[in-house]
Design a protein around this nucleic acid. Structure first.
Lengths: 219, 219
DNA sequence: CTCAGGACTTGACATCGATCAAACATCATA
DNA sequence: TATGATGTTTGATCGATGTCAAGTCCTGAG
């Protein structure tokens, strides 16, 4: 059984690896909230335990075993988030931090009860895919909102930020996962995009913020 | 914020103090599962933090502050147990160990949501009182089942053992908290007592086992 | 009243996960 | 190509929690 610290490293490495092959050490240190030196020595420990491959001055990559553990942690995290929102009625802006703690304490037995209670969902409140008990989560091809041309109609799929303030903003303007909307205008010079969620007032947001929102374009 | 280890020590000292003034060091070491030396040094640490008063070779007693923390831990533990049974449908024989982990990970916010969801209950599935958010739990005067004379009619109030095997036995014979029953016979020489839960077959159990079941005598 | 054995304490030390400061490597660019 | 910004590694060290073994205290049997 990995320690809480190890679980956190594995999870963060997994998330940093998305896209790139190697997770950079610097990013990892920031992600787990430790100094670079700590990250280096911990990653060496992970490598000794065959959970990761470490390439000095290049980065770190999870092994098969490490990936499996990371996905289990992610599954716990995301199921807990959904549970907190759906069953206990917490606000989606605050569940991330709660889940961060609970994901290390919950047993498989309880987790599967929750999974059943929720009807085996496949995404959490932020639209992030919930990995299945074994194997990898399915990957959908999503488009960042800032890449959407005017008049595009699409559906919000995923909000990639856990900042409570941002999440509250998103919620307030109805841009939560599942919402359909149309792009009213897109202006790179102004660094802004305006979208109109169906049945809502239009919202304008900066392209940086829009980049954190992933959408599924409606054909 | 006390560490998980400290929370466990406080909780165990609180439970050991019940009845006696001082919790014995030996019992504490066994309860938290460490060697006596570890318990001694940890208790000194607690004393330094003003959470306990330590009397060498006599025992340890919680201070006001220590008691407050211990009750919070107990409240978390017992609410979680009830939640696991009522909401997630786990068996009461297995929730103790689960709660043992979760009690250190759950936030006040989530806990109060659970409390509300459960309708502010005042006992857990084992009949143990759930301490209120602040202050002490009410103490009811209960009688151990082995002290009940034949023909006594009473109600099971509390089962003071967390052993899954014992709890399953109790459950199987319908001796769960809330059940009314009548004592059919009591035989100290045979070290046995036979009780008949209403609407159930009679059960015979040893006096030691009966001593772990607390009942409220019906006037 | 004594003293042996069990209970408890002490002190030396191990391990884990973290820190910090300083040495070091890499790379883009002036 | 030299240089500085940036990122990485090393090594000393810390605090929390634990072990173990030796020493001390207390109690009850003789």
């Amino acid at each position: 059984m990995p320690t809480i610290t190890v679980e956190n490293y594995l999870k963060q490495i997994y998330l940093l690896q998305r896209g790139g092959e190697l997770a950079p050490m610097g990013g990892l240190a920031v992600a787990v909230g430790v100094t670079p030196g700590t990250a280096t020595s911990m990653v060496k420990t992970l490598a000794d335990a065959n959970l990761a491959d470490y390439e000095p001055r290049a980065g770190v990559r999870l092994t098969e075993a490490g990936t499996r553990l990371a996905l289990q942690v992610l599954r716990r995290h995301r199921l807990i988030e959904l549970f907190l929102v759906q069953t206990l009625g917490l606000d989606w802006s605050e569940v991330h931090d709660e889940a961060e703690e609970l994901e290390h304490a919950i047993s498989d037995k309880v987790l599967e009860k929750i999974d059943t209670l929720l009807g085996h969902p496949d995404t959490d409140p932020h639209g992030d895919p919930i990995p299945p008990p074994t194997g990898s989560p399915r990957q959908e091809k999503l488009t960042p909102l800032n890449d959407c041309a005017p008049d595009t109609t699409a559906q919000i799929a995923r909000v990639r930020d856990q900042e409570p303030a941002f999440l509250r903003f998103v919620d307030k303007h109805g841009l939560t996962p599942g919402t359909h909307f149309t792009v009213e205008s897109q202006n790179p010079s102004a660094d802004a995009i305006t979208v109109r969620p169906h049945n809502r007032e239009p919202v304008t947001l900066g392209l940086a913020a829009a980049g954190k929102i992933m959408v599924k374009v409606v054909e």
